[in-house]
């Protein structure tokens, strides 16, 4: 379990990125932090592995304040996947996946065996093991990034807009892969995105953040749609428009669900 207690982050130039955040991130679930740019969602994520230290309040992992843990050791125990994969361009795929185990002093042979298994797990062909990242497609690079994040079998996996830079088809594929993986592995995933559809698809808990680093609502997707906390949330999730504002019409005795533009979304199952 990850807990933020009255966490604030003010940068030296005076910008407040996160203000007074209290939130509990439940274990073995996916929590998605969603908001537009400048909402402090990435800052919040990076406080978990001490890439950013809060200027006020505490971040606790299983009851331990992360400020008391050596940042290098802390990071080696937490998976991290970022946008544009952040792979080391001078290391082959297998070396990239094995990075953290090797840093931790795992024997090379063992680290490589594990890396190959992980490539299977994330759906990468083993023949790619000796390629350099620049020789892979964007989607493949992102899979390598996920495999690398899982390499030490961490309890926590931090994902910072990991699918932001790939095309929509590949993104949809990667999202499904993540759902499958999460079903198998049950990690505590903290996922940052600005895409509310992605948040609703992946999140057990969705945290909606607004400018200035304040939390507007933290709840399950269903609850957010049913009871948006305020006008900002309602507007952000688009509950009153487009493909989320559905209504029923009768067509020859069948009940068809259509969106606000009149486009059919499906039929109502009896």
């Amino acid at each position: 379990m990850i807990e933020f207690r009255r966490v604030t982050k003010q940068f030296p130039d005076g910008t407040v990125a996160v203000e007074n955040v209290d939130i509990v991130i439940p274990p073995r679930k996916t929590t998605v932090l969603v908001g537009s740019s400048g909402s402090g969602k990435t800052t919040l994520l990076r406080m978990i592995n001490r890439m950013v230290d809060p200027s006020g309040g505490q971040v606790l992992i299983d009851g331990t304040d992360v400020a008391t843990v050596d940042p290098v050791q802390l990071r080696r125990g937490i998976g991290y996947v970022m946008q544009n994969s952040g792979l080391l361009p001078h290391r082959t795929v297998i070396d990239n996946v094995a990075t953290v185990p090797l840093l931790r002093g795992t024997a090379k042979r063992q680290a490589y065996d594990r890396a190959l298994e992980l490539m299977d797990t994330v759906g990468l062909d083993r023949s790619l093991a000796d390629r350099y990242p620049s020789q892979l497609s964007g989607g493949q690079q992102q899979r390598v990034g996920v495999a690398r994040g899982l390499a030490v079998d961490p309890n926590i996996l931090l994902m910072d807009e990991p699918f932001g830079a790939v095309d929509p088809i590949v993104r949809a594929e990667l999202q499904q892969e993540l759902l499958r993986l999460q079903g198998e592995l049950g990690k505590t995933v903290v996922f940052v995105t600005h895409d509310i559809d992605e948040a609703f698809l992946l999140g057990d808990q969705v945290v909606i953040m607004q400018r200035g680093g304040k939390i507007s609502q933290a709840a399950s997707p269903t609850e957010i749609l049913a009871r948006p906390a305020d006008a900002f949330v309602a507007d952000f999730v688009g509950a009153d428009r487009g493909k989320r504002a559905l209504h029923l019409t009768d067509v020859d005795g069948r009940r068809v669900v259509v969106d606000s533009d009149g486009r059919p979304a499906g039929v109502l199952a009896p």
Binding site: Y80, M82, L88, R104
Partner: peptide
């Protein structure tokens, strides 16, 4: 940044 996040 990702190297730092990995625990270098």
């Amino acid at each position: 940044q990702s190297a730092t996040a990995m625990g270098y």
